[in-house]
């Protein structure tokens, strides 16, 4: 086991910050290349006319998931040293619903709004202001909602643990699910394009 490199002390925290910029550049580059600097393209996902969000997101998840799995199997990556966000079920369900509403109302999510701003979208700049305001409201309300915020805590719970299935089986299931979702997305896009054509 030699990875994660930082956790094995191969470089200092300051070097880690430099690498953060490099990794961030890669992240921003592919977000923009995917078309996520455009609020209209992102929002089109929710009208079934352009399923790019689903396709890019699930391809990215599957790619990283397979990489982590096989590097773990090969004994290169120590998975126990990779930080998994702990599960707080109800706050995450509520947060997801609020965030989803914000996505279609505002047209972006935090990461995509950054690349939208850097490619000149004025509405994304306003959106970023909204994010700061939303976080401020959350901060001010925090003492009142802290009890809910820390409720339904399950620690670092993973899907293999939930379903009592081996890690590899869940990885395989996610791949199968993603392929099904891609097929459905391609079919849906064709249907919507036909519908649009018939209208005009």
């Amino acid at each position: 086991m030699t990875a994660p490199f930082f956790k094995f002390g191969y470089f200092s925290e300051d070097i880690g910050l430099v690498l953060a910029i490099v990794i961030g550049i890669g992240f921003g580059f592919f977000l923009e290349q995917a078309g996520f600097g455009s609020g209209r393209k992102l929002a089109a996902q929710f009208y079934f006319t352009d399923m790019t969000v689903l396709k890019v997101m699930f391809t990215a998840i599957v790619t990283a998931m397979l990489g982590v799995f096989w590097l773990g199997v090969a004994g290169v990556l120590d998975l126990s040293l990779v930080y998994v966000s702990p599960t707080y079920l109800w706050p995450q369900i509520a947060g997801g619903l609020v965030l989803g509403a914000g996505f279609v109302i505002g047209g972006y999510c935090p990461g995509t709004s950054c690349v939208a701003v850097s490619t000149g979208k004025a509405d994304a700049l306003v959106y970023l202001g909204g994010i700061l305001a939303g976080i401020f409201v959350f901060g001010e309300l925090f003492p009142a909602i802290e009890e809910f915020y820390i409720s339904s805590a399950y620690g670092t719970l993973t899907l293999p643990e939930v379903f009592h299935l081996p890690y590899g089986v869940v990885v395989f299931a996610v791949v199968v699910m993603a392929i099904g979702a891609f097929a459905a997305a391609e079919w849906g896009e064709r249907k919507m394009a036909q519908k649009k054509e018939n209208k005009t």
């Binding site: 706050p91 996505f103 505002g106 972006y108 306003v126 909204g130 305001a133 409201v137």
Partner: peptide, 17 residues
């Protein structure tokens, strides 16, 4: 709408960690 959506996004993201 961009400001409202951003606000909901910021709040929701904090709630969901």
């Amino acid at each position: 709408f961009a400001f409202l959506g951003g606000g909901l996004m910021g709040f929701g993201a904090k709630l969901a960690r």
